[in-house]
């Protein structure tokens, strides 16, 4: 039997496009180890920000800004300016193999849409738990 991604879905942290990088980081932290935050406007998915994107947006050690100035900037810059707009989307019926194939090819994290509604995200963590499950059968 082909299993679909339904069993892997977890609730998605979501923010508005005007939310700041600080808000996105807070949403990610409160989701407990999620890989990405969905950016949603008028109940429609408009983009995605991953934990890696947020880390890459932070200045390097070579910055001349003080910690306070960096914090201030992160509380001002909207997620819209760094979000990925070309998010790979799948449906709840998508087989796990197809989701794993997209992730392997570097297209993830994947947004799971039922119609226009965002019902979950599938990232490496969800699929790794699938690797564990498959092997231990």
């Amino acid at each position: 039997m082909t299993r679909d991604v339904r069993s892997l879905l977890r609730p998605v942290p979501a923010v508005e496009p005007t939310a700041t990088l600080e808000d996105a980081e807070a949403a990610l932290r409160s989701s407990g180890g999620g890989e990405a935050v969905a950016v949603v406007h008028h109940d429609r998915l408009v983009g995605l920000v991953t934990a890696d994107d947020l880390a890459a947006a932070r200045p390097s050690a070579a910055t001349t800004l003080s910690i306070g100035e960096v914090r201030g900037a992160l509380a001002r810059i909207p997620v819209e300016s760094i979000m990925r707009r070309d998010v790979a989307t799948i449906v709840p019926d998508t087989p796990i193999a197809e989701a794993a194939r997209l992730m392997r090819d570097g297209r993830g994290p994947l947004a799971v849409l039922a119609g226009d509604d965002l019902v979950g995200l599938v990232g490496a963590a969800e699929l790794l738990s699938e690797v564990e499950r498959e092997e231990s059968r």
Partner: peptide
């Protein structure tokens, strides 16, 4: 670890 991807932060590096 590299420079910020946000231009307004990267100019300060």
């Amino acid at each position: 670890a590299g420079p910020s991807t946000v231009p307004c932060l990267a100019v300060h590096e």
